[in-house]
Nucleic acid binder design. Structure first.
Lengths: 320, 320
DNA sequence: AATACGAATCGAAACGTTTCGAATAAAAGA
DNA sequence: TCTTTTATTCGAAACGTTTCGATTCGTATT
């Protein structure tokens, strides 16, 4: 592996001069700088990150920590972050679970965007206290160097339910996501707000965990219990909505005639599923871009506040 | 930030002793080791990765380099890799494009799994020559420390086309993926092989690039040209197949009656689309696991060869 | 009592950079 | 001609670890 020592020797200069040349320091004359860079190119020299990071005490890397790689929702956020990070001469890494934990603790990133629920508050607080700023998504956590970014779950859910009430639905139900999820809580809060404003019951509440399987289970149980079905069911995300609809359609329950359904996220599938699913679209790509931009501003000391909210809008389709 | 120096001082031992304790070296007595570890926990000490990596000349990180984050196909591979990497005490990072390039060149990973087409051969050869092994997917590239892993595209495509010939289709077409793609080439090779064996024309060939949009465009052109339609169209992946079907269905062309369609990848959407899409399933998760396992074996010097092939099987659905 | 040994610990060099302050040489001012 | 200034380059320390080769000390062997 060719080091800066090799480069300096080849160019007949000191190590420090070589370093200054590589980093485009103005005090090196144009000629030597160009000569050194030329030799660097020839030798295929690239600075060793470990050494550089050690000395500089930063990595130029932004880490994104996700909850597994399969979620269809977050890939667009990632693409948005990627674009913005690259545009600002940072590098991006995406990691998950235990690996992410290690990367954070061992100071392998300058800043973090945290989606991963498996990273506990304690960890985040420790890391941010040590000077690594983090934006947390779908999570309530405050402290030095910690920034929250949410989507306006409550407002948009409220709006959807109000519209459904206007359309005449009487028994409005909710299929919840993971109970820890801030998103889930606030979606439900919007639902409750709309219902109570209209003096409608909030009894149609069913527990899920954001997976399609949990939606399917809720659907099955609703059918087998033979209890009164709601006439409109708002699911905390599209995947569950599809699970629910799978279950209903297996039993020839007609959507939206027997029961209307809506989801959240506008995943690609929701427009291909039959009936097409009414859902709430989040501008994930844009959100990702803005998150990255905000974090980089913090890192560059251009800002010490993050005010990024994802924009949502309701997409009415066949399922209502 | 607490360093090993702080830890050593607090414990009243030398830096080297502290280091040995952290790394569970047998020459440190049980008592001091435990005492030091206890203090480390209290101080919330975590070794600085840059310093460790610099000294050890390795990072314990496996990098996966993807072609953007949105592809539905690769998320399962990632999950498989993630599982296996974590099980073997390595960390995983996923990156893309320019960031990935930097991480590789600056030696931030011990080994690489490369899906990203934007990383050119030259780069990969340079990096692997410097001792970082890489497995390349969907790509022909050989050299020291370079390993290829493919799926058996040719065989499975051959098998599908033979079956379709048996079913009586006469005008069999192919919608290609990106021309550079090894996958695409070999899928087509299987098609050609089956067709020529049966003295059937290979003239129904249409250019795509793996995106849904390109499939849609092919569909539109096929319709507008008013030329003879094939009776079966094999698309190099599901996304294009769906694009094609979108176009056809807009013009009330019946699938599979007017034209039968098949794709490749078995993305989730393919079972929800109407008609359900016949496709070829690849065991991505398992593939990912095996890739990671193989790479780690190479890194641990347990092996100097990688023989990982993804398993495929045809899933017959409504579109044929 | 002297020696040898092994277990536990330590000191210091090294990894490849960056960066501060000093040194050198040439140009400018006196 | 001598001093000052400016432009360029250099030497060395530092970043936080790991690890080699001592050193120390208590115990077993002679």
């Amino acid at each position: 592996m060719v080091t800066i020592k090799d480069l300096a020797k080849k160019a007949g200069v000191s190590i420090s001069t070589a370093s200054y040349a590589i980093n485009d320091d103005p005090r090196i004359s144009k000629e030597t700088k160009e000569r050194i860079l030329e030799i660097a190119r020839k030798l295929n020299y690239h600075p060793n990150a470990a050494a550089r990071n050690l000395k500089r005490k930063r990595t130029n890397i932004i880490g994104v920590f996700v909850d597994g790689f399969k979620g269809p929702v977050y890939s667009k956020i990632l693409d948005g972050i990627h674009l913005e990070v690259t545009n600002n001469n940072f590098n991006i890494i995406v990691s998950s679970g235990e690996s992410g934990r290690n990367l954070l603790l061992e100071q392998q990133v300058d800043g973090a965007i945290i989606i991963d629920r498996s990273l506990d508050d304690e960890l985040i607080i420790h890391v941010t206290n040590n000077g690594i700023p983090a934006i947390v998504l779908d999570r309530r956590l405050s402290g030095k160097n910690i920034y929250e970014s949410m989507l306006n779950n409550e407002e948009i859910s409220y709006e959807l339910i109000k519209e459904m009430i206007k359309r005449g639905y009487k028994k409005i139900g909710y299929v919840s996501g993971s109970p820890k999820s801030y998103d889930n809580l606030h979606r439900y809060k919007g639902v409750v707000k709309a219902l109570t404003e209209h003096n409608m019951p909030t009894t149609y509440y069913y527990k899920g965990d954001f997976t399609k399987e949990s939606g399917y289970k809720v659907g099955k149980e609703l059918i087998s219990k033979n209890s009164e079905l709601p006439d409109f069911l708002f699911c905390a995300n599209d995947e569950m909505a599809i699970g629910v609809m799978d279950a209903f359609q297996e039993h020839n329950i007609k959507i939206p005639d027997d029961i209307a359904i809506a989801g959240f996220d506008n995943i690609e599938l929701s427009q291909y599923y039959r009936p097409k699913l009414t859902t709430i679209d989040v501008e994930h790509f844009k959100w990702g871009r803005e998150l990255a931009k905000a974090l980089i501003n913090v890192l560059n000391n251009n800002s010490d506040t993050v005010d990024v909210k994802a924009k949502c809008k309701i997409i009415y389709r066949e399922s209502c």
